[in-house]
């Protein structure tokens, strides 16, 4: 009965398109990681672990790309979670024009990342940008920086721009989580004489954990896949200081080093697929219960 009503062939088109254009390149990538595939020759040779050894032996800049990607991921996860939680708690009650604020705070998340990059390229311009201009106007000249070309600041600026874009989205999820907490818990705790911190620690945090897990997963995946914001703001510069996995892959691709590009991509693929396995298991279990 079920089989006739819900035939499997309904799902075949989705499975084929997804497999051919999404999964297959990932799997093929693992094979090509062990080759010298490039744009100069039509022949592809098996070279064993040469590409991977080059990535991990630490002599070339490849380990730096991995490190930058991890730093970016950790920094954005922490900043977006902490700031998002802080903003959500502040906006949870006693705010007028709540709808308006929600629209505003969410707005950056829907703007194309490329556009955000271009806008901040102007704002962070050391000579004419809005940020340095504002700092000069209020007499904080000493705080002005070459935000995107100074070795100490370039990566931090990129992280800040990404947080600017993404924090509103995280806040909205956490706000929805906060609003689903029953108010009577807080009332009961107040009667028992609990202070703000006790309520935060014993009521808010335990009940917001499901939402926090979702935001962390989203931020984590987003952080590992970062490309546009780096590509537009610094394109990896100064030097290779801000290059991440996907910008490095694009550079290898553009210079015709397909084997190396695909080896880097495969490292990311394996890490994220393993990570994804646990995440998705969690997600599909939740779906089955409801």
């Amino acid at each position: 009965m079920n089989r006739a009503m819900y035939p499997f062939y309904f799902a075949i088109a989705a499975l084929i398109v997804y497999s051919v254009f999404f999964v297959m390149p990932g799997l093929m990538g693992i094979y090509y990681s062990f080759t010298d595939w490039n744009s100069y020759s039509n022949e592809v040779h098996y070279i064993g672990f040469d590409n991977l050894a080059k990535i991990f032996d630490g002599q070339a800049k490849y380990l730096g790309y991995i490190k930058n990607t991890l730093v970016f991921m950790v920094a954005t996860v922490v900043l977006k979670t902490v700031l998002g939680m802080l903003f959500a708690m502040m906006l949870n009650d006693g705010i007028r024009a709540k709808g308006l604020h929600r629209v505003m705070l969410f707005m950056p998340s829907i703007i194309p990342m490329l556009v955000v990059g271009l806008i901040f390229k102007s704002i962070l311009n050391p000579a004419t940008g809005l940020l340095n201009e504002s700092l000069r106007t209020v007499g904080l000249e000493f705080m002005t920086q070459k935000w995107l070309t100074d070795l100490n600041w370039a990566f931090k600026s990129i992280i800040a721009v990404d947080v600017w874009k993404g924090v509103g989205y995280i806040m909205i999820i956490l706000l929805a989580g906060l609003q689903s907490i029953d108010k009577t818990y807080y009332e009961a705790a107040s009667i028992d004489g609990a202070n703000f911190w006790q309520k935060l620690l014993h009521i808010t945090l335990p009940l917001i954990i499901p939402a926090l897990m979702v935001t962390t997963v989203l931020n984590l995946l987003h952080g590992l896949k970062v490309f546009e914001v780096v590509y537009v703001l610094t394109n990896g510069g100064p030097g290779y200081a801000t290059d991440v996995m996907y910008t490095a892959i694009f550079k290898e691709f553009s210079t015709g080093n397909y084997g190396m590009g695909t080896a880097l991509s495969s490292v990311l693929f394996i890490v994220m697929t393993v990570l994804g396995y646990f995440v998705v298991r969690l997600m599909s279990r939740e779906g089955n219960e409801s």
Binding site: F8, A11, A14, L15, Y18, V20, F21, F22, V23, M24, P25, G26, M28, G29, Y32, L221, L224, K225, I249, F250, E252, F253, Y258, G261, T262, S265, S266, L268, F269, M272, T273, L275, G276, Y277, V279, V280, R281, M283, S284
Partner: peptide, 28 residues
């Protein structure tokens, strides 16, 4: 079917390999 559903939503986490995707695009 549960396995296939799992396989499909694994794509939420998987990154795209653009280099080999180019090869697939050439083939097709």
């Amino acid at each position: 079917n549960k396995g296939m559903y799992f396989y499909l939503i694994m794509g939420i986490a998987m990154p795209t390999n653009f280099v080999t995707l180019m090869k697939v695009m050439q083939w097709t």
